[in-house]
Design a protein around this nucleic acid. Structure first.
Lengths: 97, 97
DNA sequence: ATTACATTTGACCAGTTTTGTCAAAACACA
DNA sequence: TGTGTTTTGACAAAACTGGTCAAATGTAAT
């Protein structure tokens, strides 16, 4: 199962870059990027988009990864997760109409 | 489409109680309960359980309502909502293994 | 073992968001 | 108008986020 951190770590390694370099490019502290890559901290939406652009990753893919990490985290110790997701789906559909 | 606020407002009205009374019982400011009922503020999990107990509502039902409100709110302006929910579902399943 | 460099960790601060408290305003209705 | 209920908004306290930095740890070569 993939997650946001893995995606950006793999992208960085494929390009052979150091945290220091990415940090300089994106103007984000390297300690924070390290934490993002290990899923210890969640980036802001802005930051997600910065990563997508810099690593030339599909924006939507990265956003979905990021948001779903967050949702899964919120529901992690809820055995009601299935019901919650179904209910949320209905609510979102309803709002759209 | 139901939501947390409606459920507790209906429960209160069915029992013919005033906000003041519920506030005293649950030790929650009545202004806050008014906001919960109008979905203007989100309660904590503790508070959700207090309501379930006091109104004798099914705990699970109320928790699902509350959590799904939250998830739907988080995804409200994301047109990726469907994809996000599916991805989150996978992640939760995966974690359970 | 020491050096050189990369990554991770943790303490700290600042800014934001959330939560609770309260009183005044708005509402309902006899 | 008078009485009681609900809603609103301003405010403060508490909790949470996000960023900065330096020290600690890890890694590989010499």
């Amino acid at each position: 199962m993939s997650n946001f951190g893995d995606l950006i770590r793999i992208a960085r390694e494929e390009k052979g870059l150091f945290l220091r370099q990415v940090a300089a490019e994106l103007d984000i502290d390297q300690a924070i990027i390290s934490k993002f890559e290990r899923n210890e901290r969640k980036p802001t939406k802005e930051q997600v988009l910065k990563f997508a652009k810099f690593y030339k990753l599909d924006k939507e893919t990265l956003l979905v990864e990021w948001l779903s990490d967050k949702v899964a985290y919120d529901l992690q110790d809820e055995n009601l997760a299935d019901k919650v997701l179904k209910a949320a789906e209905q609510k979102i559909k309803y709002k759209k109409k």
